[in-house]
Nucleic acid binder design. Structure first.
Lengths: 242, 242
DNA sequence: AATGTCAAGATTGCATACGATTTGCCCAAA
DNA sequence: TTTGGGCAAATCGTATGCAATCTTGACATT
């Protein structure tokens, strides 16, 4: 099995291709591939394969995989390799529980700092979302998931707390994985209007309302998932998770 | 300058010295040294030095330093090396803002799951805290900071959300650094009684009250810090921090 | 005295080599 | 046919070597 065609090697923009760590670029590229579901959960990412794909040595490939492991996007098994994470329903629940905790706070911080320019930027982003929403096909759906995540990330950026921003980075990435895994197909489209509603409340300076809307939004996302005990796939999972 | 005497090479318990990643053990050891302030902020941690200290190659030492960089406990500069983080007051504020967001949620989750055994364990921990509190000297003070952090970590563990647990791990570690840097000496002792109060509320199953107490506790910790613009030290800092 | 230039030393960035561990296959024996 | 053992391939874990980059100190120049 060859993963090469699944990865877009030019994900990183030229100017971001800094003279610095190539491992960072590789991480980004793999991250995007994973959260777009171009790399399915369980896919093996061997050091040598990743290395030769990006034309670097195992050392730097390894560094990228270590970072992804730290973020929870891949899991490594000793002497076996790294695999794209296959989050369990329990993990999924914890991810959303974390988001329910953090995002209202982010909204509350954002309402204090958001500028008209930010609002305009958000509107652009929401248009993009809508565009993908109206398209059909798996590519558009992936783009929609990504765009939807970007909304939350932009919010975190506006809130101005770099630590929470990093937490959200991780949570959104893992959420994308979870949605791709457990999402029921049709319903994610309702997310867009909820984003709009949150933004409207923010624009009016009504942080209370924005936070409430955000919680409902997260609830809806989670409610759209099918988090029953995993059918079939793994007895290993059944055992390891009790 | 030699950092060897600052690091306790036997920090990790024998059974935790798993046949696995030695870099993990090194990370733990350095982490402890940093949050105890045996390694002062700004201290350089060169790969070869760390490597020879723990008797491993630079490769392994490097992996440990990368993990610490990911956690925000060290900062790496390209082609220069890794340095123990020197968190700015702004960073400190963001750390505590994050904690104010997350910890009430952890308390709320913990109250649902805490067992009598957990309570007993907490009481033991609080006794330990008290012991250090009554001792004098910098060593006792460091131990007190560490014990105080452990209380919050135990709470996160009881809450049962591994993601939040990891976030708290990072936040508590960085808080320790911040407290050591900006803490006014005398006042941290009030923390102990607040921990006790939180635990009492938890034992009674009063999650509301426990969460409120926790927020106040965090407020008090932050209020005890001196987060004014850093006096004197650096024009370099003044520039880089705006 | 202050500043600019340059070379030596130190340190990281990266690649590669070798050893250890695991996996999977093949074949023999029941 | 099934089970068990052993060997080969693959992969990771680690050490080390070389090149690139940065710092530092000395020295010359203004």
């Amino acid at each position: 099995m060859n993963i090469s065609e699944k990865i877009n090697l030019t994900d990183t923009t030229p100017e971001e291709r800094s003279p610095e760590d190539r491992s960072m670029a590789i991480r980004e590229s793999l991250r995007n591939a994973i959260i777009d579901r171009r790399l399915a959960p369980g896919t093996k990412l061997s050091e040598s394969e990743v290395g030769s794909l990006f034309d670097v040595s195992r050392t730097v490939a390894r560094a990228a995989l270590q970072m992804l492991a730290f973020e929870g996007l891949v899991k490594t098994e000793r002497n076996r390799g790294a695999f794209v994470s296959n989050p369990s329903p329990e993990e999924a629940r914890q991810i959303f529980a974390s988001r329910r905790l953090i995002e209202p706070g982010i909204v509350a911080a954002a309402v204090e700092r958001i500028t008209p320019e930010d609002i305009a930027e958000f509107r652009r982003q929401l248009n993009e979302e809508e565009r993908y929403m109206n398209e059909r096909g798996p590519a558009a759906r992936r783009a929609e998931i990504k765009a939807s995540g970007d909304f939350h990330l932009m919010l975190a950026s506006v809130a101005g707390n770099v630590i929470l921003q990093r937490f959200m980075d991780e949570l959104v990435a893992r959420s994308s994985l979870v949605i791709a895994l457990y999402g029921r197909s049709g319903v994610s489209s309702c997310g867009h209007s909820e984003h709009t509603a949150v933004l409207d409340a923010l624009e009016k300076g009504d942080g209370e309302r924005a936070a409430k809307l955000m919680i409902h939004h997260i609830d809806h996302i989670e409610a759209d998932l099918d988090l029953q005990v995993k059918q079939g796939l793994g007895l290993k999972d059944a055992l390891s998770l009790g």
